[in-house]
Structure formats: structure tokens, C-alpha cells
Design a protein around this nucleic acid. Structure first.
Lengths: 232, 232
DNA sequence: TTCTTCTTAATTGTCGACAATCTTGTGGGT
DNA sequence: ACCCACAAGATTGTCGACAATTAAGAAGAA
């Protein structure tokens, strides 16, 4: 059983080679296989993936869309560099957008969907208790929860922005800064409170709780980062 | 003097042919020259703009990014169709993101920037009083105000999302639904109140006022739309 | 007539080559 | 030694052609 979470489960399967290359490069960047800040040469990557430059350029365009590479005309593309300010900026937006998503989800989710999400949480909790501290699983669980809430908002722009554009960056920060979970049990409690608010159709509360949840996550990361700074 | 507002003043000049084609097609879609819902054939547009398909496909990818066209693999691209739900979804996001932008602007704008924006408002007010009801100018002024606030947030993701992705759609809705301004004087008052809150460094109030401002704009459009429905 | 199926045409995806641009390294001058 | 101009190399942007897939239309059966 593969525990690696597919971040694009809401999208269609990759059909074109540009799609395949995109997925591969996305993973390579998120996992750090292509180091942050490194230069990307089209010819190089094209050879590496056994495709022509045409589909690779298509993939690059989409990578730029999800903020994983930065391109300058006639000069090429670089993998983004992770910065403290960038992380803050990212989480600021997440707070607003996921708060909104949560409010909309509370208004629009079908009862069965809520039930299913609640079940999923129980499931994660059980698995987490079994594998105490196994963090990647936790991350997948967290991502999964957020994904479901976002999809439940049924706002297409919101879904695109969060799932297609921002979430790769979120995962990249998590992976490369080693955000393996201490915050596990608290995160689960917060998820639980959020799903309760949604079940009560209390959009306002769900919004507030989601913002707090993300804010807490941000503060947690900030704390880890400053600790890391002291060392280095 | 050309009153047409350049929506990408914060970006570099177009350097590649893909850039030029992108700008042209963006304008064509926003203005309705390429009708909403119509199919886009790559060969056709390529010939129309005297370029090869390669730069045109690059442009198409970016058009998809700003939600002006929808592509399906192996099937081609269509200009987006404007819907009531889409408009609501768009303004929901604008409320959140521009509210955030406004709060950040209140915290981060330099005194001189605030002064300049205030001056710009006075300028718009004067011009608007001269040409009573000339609406496109008003739109440019409104767009300009929002652009400046967004840029002042200094959050790069926010700037990209709002200025590069969503604002073309906003303009498309405005142009094609004939949102010429009745709401002129009230909009100016609201802008004035917002800049005041920013000048007082009251981020919370600036946030609230911007949300209300956009909410009012949305309700105004909703009203017009329902009136339009009664006719047709 | 209507539906299905197959053929044909049109359109998108991909490729390799060339042109335009930027980067690097060398040489000369101060 | 330092700086600037220039040339060679590498990289991106663009092009036209071919392959793969889809859409359109004709032919035939119910």
C-alpha cells in the first residue's frame, strides 16, 4: 500500500506527456530532488524525461503557475527559493481562503459528505495512534482533510487556487523544512472541532476555527524556523 | 490621451511574441471580441496574429491561468462562459483577498505612498465631476485604486493572484455585463474612507471597509443582473 | 426517421531544426 | 590590477512538419 498522497485526486489522470512530466517535476521540486534555487535548463530536463522541449515547456508554464519555478524571458527558469517572508505570505493567504472555504463547506456540504469526512478523521486518528509519530502519514492526513474541505466549498476558483496553485508550495515548505508532526494530536482535535462546526452548519465558527488552525500551524513553523536559525 | 487602462503596469513590458499575443487575446476576450463560450482553434488564432503555434500555445496556457479560457486535453480551448454563480464565486474570493491586501497595505505602505494614492483619488474625483457619467473612466479609476492597494500589500502571492489571475475576469464581467457606473459617487466615498483607514494605520478597519466596498459592488451587480433577467 | 458504425477531415500533441538572445570567457586598453 | 569591448558558446524563442487523437459526416440497419 502506497501512503504517498496524490495531491491531484480531484483532477483527471495525466493524459499527455506534458502532464506526466509536470507531475514528475512537481514531485522532484517538492521533495528537493531539484534543489531550491537551482537553474532549470529545458534541454536537460527534456532529455532526463525522454520528451521533447515542447511538452516540457508546457510543464514549465504550469510549474510557474503553482509558484514552483520562476521564469524570466530569454533567461530561463529557476526553482523557487524558500524564504521566511514567503512562508508568512503563503500562510496569510491560506488563512483567508481556507477560512472562506470552510464557511462555504459548512453551508454546502451534503450530510453524507460530512459523515464521510468525519469517518475519515476517525480513521486517521486510529492510524496515527498505531504509528505514533510516523509523520508523513500525518501530513497526508492533514493535507487530505484540507483538500476535502476545499473541494466541499464548491467554489471553482477557490479550488483551483488552493489545490492547484498553492498546495504544492505548502507541501514543499513542509517537506524541505522538515515539518514532521509534533502538532499531531492538537491538529486532530482542531480538525475535529472544525468538522463539528460544519456539521452544525455554523459557517462563521467553522471559518474562525479554520483560520485559527492555520494560524497555529504557521506559528508552529515560525517557532521551528527561529529555533533552526539559532543553530545555524 | 489614451484612457484605456493597462492592467499589467506592474509587470515588465512584453518582450516575446507570446507576450504580445497574450495581451491581444486577453483584451479580445475581455472586450467580447472573442465571444464568451466560443471555441478557440490554435491554427486560427496563430494565423490571425501572424505567429506560429508555439508562442500561441504559451499564451493559451497563461490565458488558462487567468481563467479566461478553459482547455481540455486533445479537445482544445474555449473562451469561458460568464455565469451568475461564477460571478458570485469570484467576488467571494475578492472580498477575502482584497480585504487582506487592504490590511497589509495599512501596515506596510510608506507615508509618501499613502499621500500619492490620496492625491490620485482627488484627481479621479475631479475628472469624474467634469465628465459626469462617463463610466469607463470610472472603471479605470476604480481598477487603478484597487491595483494600488493590492500592490501595496507587498505580498507577492496576493499580487499575482489578484492582478494576474482574477482581475481580467473582473474586467470581463464588468465590460460584458455593462457595469457602467451608477455607483460612482458612492464608490469614491468608499475609496476615501478606505484610504483614511490606511492613513490612520487601522488595518482592521481598512480590511472591513474594503470587504464592504466589494460586497456592495457585488450586490450592485447582482441587482442589475436580476433586473436584466426580468427583461429577457 | 433515428441510431449506430465507420470513414474522413480537422485539431491538438510532439518533434527536430533554426533564429534570436543571453551568458561566459578572452583579449586589449587604461 | 581593473574595466570594457568583443567573440564563442550555450540557452531560450520560434517555426514548420509529422503523429496521435478527437470531432464531423456519410452510410447502413433497425
Amino acid at each position: 500500500m502506497n501512503l504517498v498522497y496524490d495531491p491531484q485526486h480531484h483532477l483527471n489522470q495525466p493524459v499527455t506527456s506534458a502532464d506526466r512530466v509536470l507531475l514528475a517535476v512537481q514531485q522532484a521540486i517538492v521533495e528537493g530532488e531539484l534543489p531550491a534555487g537551482s537553474k532549470i535548463t529545458e534541454t536537460g530536463l527534456a532529455k532526463q524525461f525522454n520528451v521533447s522541449r515542447a511538452p516540457l515547456r508546457e510543464a514549465l508554464a504550469r510549474l510557474e503557475r503553482c509558484h514552483l519555478v520562476e521564469r524570466t524571458p530569454n533567461a530561463g527558469a529557476r526553482v523557487v527559493t524558500l524564504t521566511y517572508d514567503g512562508l508568512i505570505a503563503l500562510y496569510q493567504i491560506r488563512e483567508e481562503l481556507e477560512g472562506l472555504a470552510c464557511r462555504l463547506a459548512a453551508e454546502r456540504m451534503a450530510d453524507e459528505e460530512i459523515e464521510a469526512l468525519s469517518k475519515l478523521l476517525e480513521q486517521h486518528l486510529a492510524s496515527q495512534r498505531v504509528r505514533e509519530g510516523e509523520s508523513y502519514y500525518q501530513e497526508a492526513g492533514d493535507v487530505d482533510f484540507h483538500y476535502r474541505v476545499i473541494l466541499a466549498s464548491k467554489n471553482q476558483y477557490l479550488i483551483n487556487m488552493l489545490c492547484d496553485e498553492l498546495y504544492f508550495l505548502v507541501r514543499m515548505y513542509r517537506v524541505q523544512l522538515g515539518m514532521n508532526g509534533p502538532r499531531v494530536s492538537r491538529a486532530f482535535d482542531e480538525h475535529k472541532a472544525i468538522i463539528n462546526a460544519i456539521a452544525n452548519r455554523d459557517g462563521e465558527l467553522a471559518d474562525l476555527l479554520m483560520r485559527r488552525h492555520i494560524s497555529a500551524s504557521r506559528k508552529n513553523i515560525e517557532q521551528k524556523l527561529s529555533a533552526h536559525k539559532e543553530v545555524s
